[in-house]
Write a protein that binds this DNA or RNA. Structure first.
Lengths: 241, 241
DNA sequence: CGCCGGATTGAAGGTACTCAATCCGTGTGG
DNA sequence: CCACACGGATTGAGTACCTTCAATCCGGCG
């Protein structure tokens, strides 16, 4: 019930864009709805492989992913590079830039995708008028901090197969939250990109996939994944070390 | 010049607490200063080893470190635990809790320390009235996201000695920014804690310290550090892989 | 003085990396 | 239509780095 209200508010905030992450957890008055309309924006398309923004670009907007998916990658001075996240429909991208007014990483489309642009100045202005929006924006940013902590734990203390299990379970949850199957889905990223994200080499990812398949935990055919035992993956993740 | 203005504003915001991270980059009117006074707060002391907050605690306040230092540690369900950060004077701690209204990690004093409590509700309220404060709060949160990305890069793609070099150089910068020597300082944390933060075993940390000393890059005596060659550490950090 | 926790050092072993060969699906050109 | 090239994925063998386990050292404190 509340859900449909949220979606209708959403449409106001982001015309015809079912923007989960910015939906407000409360009803808005007519006046407040009119204010939300101020957050006018444009919807843009990005072809697979194209950049939404690059490291060093000035902060203009945050972006809500309307369709498709992206990766963010962080570039070290010495050329080292690492995938720092994979973002899918309904997630917000670009928060890294607020700190310095410049983006600190690249965002690249993993497939043909559409994003809703949310001019950051307007977002700030509006969130001064709508405490619920303010709180929500804060939650999104804080959530990103917590997510990073989880990745740090993964990178710092898990072995290869645990990392991949955690990755697959996380994808599973996120697909489920969007109404897709939690056990059958297509990977949008290469072994190389998964490895970069998980701090492993692509060969190690490939071997771990094969091992999971041998153990009957998953069926994997290149980028098609079928999870046969969520519990099995969870057990792998929780294994002593 | 501006600096002193900032510090005086600071005192208003945080009585007698030279709170760098919340100082505002602009002058405030008399009325605005009065508003800042609304952010009344308490200053509390924490003995070495005591908890500022624990995972699961309800979000009440953010905390600005007035003296001393803390570590934050993240606890996995299965008992795995990892240090996710070391915070020193002037830094803000507790941002992780905004996401779920509960702290997602523990904060433990590394030495006898004092913090200024910043009730989060008041902070939000006030930041609706003071756009400069709002922007600054956003920058602090975003900065934490960027910091996490840097740690992810470190954990995902650096070898042991590079990680320790990065750690020492980061400490050096932070001490320098606070007016201390960038080359001589005391570590506040154990080898175990450094290892946990850097995703390594304590023995590996110890060996890397010894190796740096053999190479003439540092003098280390348990927790006393003297950096002999910042360039040398930087070179180690930048070495091919 | 002796205990204790943290730090150092040594030796052996394991996990993931590196290098390399092969496979496979897709797209391209003859 | 088939051959071929290409990029990504898989698999194998050897190696490097870090971990693990263990012994020892060192400084502080009862």
């Amino acid at each position: 019930m509340q859900r449909t209200v949220l979606l209708s508010q959403l449409k106001i905030a982001c015309s015809n864009c079912n923007l989960r992450e910015l939906c407000l957890p409360v009803d808005l008055s007519v006046g407040e709805m009119q204010q939300m309309e101020k957050l006018s924006h444009a919807k843009h398309s990005y072809a697979r492989g194209s950049y939404l923004y690059r490291s060093g670009d000035k902060l203009q907007s945050l972006y809500a992913i309307h369709s498709g998916s992206f990766k963010t990658q962080f570039l070290h001075e010495d050329g080292r590079e690492q995938v720092t996240g994979f973002q899918m429909v309904g997630e917000i991208i670009g928060l890294d830039a607020i700190s310095t007014d410049q983006h600190s990483c690249d965002a690249v489309a993993l497939e043909n995708s559409e994003v809703c642009e949310l001019p950051f100045n307007k977002l700030e202005e509006l969130s001064r008028e709508l405490p619920e929006l303010q709180r929500h924006l804060h939650k999104i940013m804080s959530g990103e901090i917590v997510r990073s902590q989880g990745i740090m734990l993964l990178l710092g203390s898990m072995r290869a197969e645990q990392r991949l299990a955690a990755f697959l379970l996380n994808l599973s949850q996120r697909f489920a939250a969007r109404g897709h199957s939690p056990t059958r889905f297509q990977l949008r990223m290469s072994r190389q990109e998964i490895g970069s994200y998980l701090g492993l080499q692509l060969e190690t990812i490939s071997r771990a996939f094969s091992h999971f398949q041998d153990d009957g935990l998953i069926n994997v055919n290149v980028r098609s994944i079928e999870i046969l035992s969520l519990q099995g993956l969870q057990a792998c993740l929780n294994s002593s070390r």
